[in-house]
Amino acid sequence: MHKEEVFEIVKRCICEVLPELKDHPFHYEDRLVDLGADSVDRADIVMKTMEALSLNIPRVELSGVKNVGELTDALYAKL
């Protein structure tokens, strides 16, 4: 799987949790909090994305990510 595919899955999961962003032009530097995701939304996005990628990693390993791109990179590194 390519990193761009992981990014597409992350975007899809964000839109599942925050449907109002379905037409948002996502960029790697987008921060979930700036997109309107509260802490519960962010946790849900991470869990949905990990499920979609069949990953089971401790969420604490992802606690330092600052934006959508870093989340994509961190998940891609675990594949």
Rank of each mutant, 00 (worst) to 15 (best):
R31T: 03
D23Y: 11
I45N: 04
D73E: 15
L18W: 05
E61H: 02
L62H: 10
K66W: 02
H2V: 05
E61T: 07
T49P: 06
P58S: 01
R12E: 15
Y76R: 02
D41R: 06
V68I: 15
E20F: 15
D38W: 01
Y76D: 09
P19S: 09
L55D: 04
N67H: 13
E8N: 13
V46A: 11
N56R: 14
A74S: 12
N67P: 03
P58H: 03
K66A: 10
S54A: 10
L62E: 06
K11C: 15
R59T: 12
L35I: 05
K11L: 01
A52R: 11
H27N: 11
D73K: 09
F7Y: 11
L71D: 06
V65H: 06
I14A: 04
L32C: 03
E51Q: 13
D41W: 06
R42W: 00
K11F: 00
L55W: 10
T72G: 06
S63A: 15
A43H: 05
E70F: 01
L35C: 03
D44S: 14
I14D: 01
H24R: 13
L32T: 04
D44P: 00
K22F: 09
D73T: 12
T72H: 02
F7D: 03
K11W: 00
D30T: 03
S63Q: 12
K78N: 02
M1G: 14
C13N: 15
E4C: 03
K48I: 00
E4M: 10
P58D: 08
V40Y: 11
V6Y: 03
I9C: 04
L71A: 02
C13G: 01
E5I: 01
G69Y: 01
I14G: 05
E70S: 07
S63I: 05
L62D: 08
D41Q: 09
K78H: 10
M47C: 09
D30F: 05
E5W: 00
M47I: 15
I45D: 02
R31H: 07
G36I: 04
D41I: 02
H27R: 15
P58L: 03
D44R: 14
L75G: 03
V10W: 00
M1K: 08
E8A: 15
M1R: 10
I9Q: 10
L75A: 07
H2W: 09
D44N: 14
E20D: 13
V17L: 03
M1Y: 07
K78E: 12
P19E: 09
K78T: 02
H24G: 07
L18P: 04
I45S: 03
E16D: 14
D30R: 04
R31Q: 13
V33Y: 08
E8L: 13
M47E: 11
V17D: 04
L79D: 06
V10I: 08
H2S: 14
L71I: 04
V40M: 14
E5H: 07
D41A: 15
D34G: 03
S63D: 12
I9G: 04
M1A: 14
E51D: 14
K66F: 00
I14C: 07
C15V: 12
L62Y: 06
F7G: 02
L79H: 12
I45C: 08
D23V: 07
V17P: 05
S63H: 06
K3Y: 01
L32R: 04
I9R: 11
A77Y: 01
R59Y: 00
D41G: 07
A52G: 14
P19N: 10
S54Y: 11
K66E: 14
M47P: 00
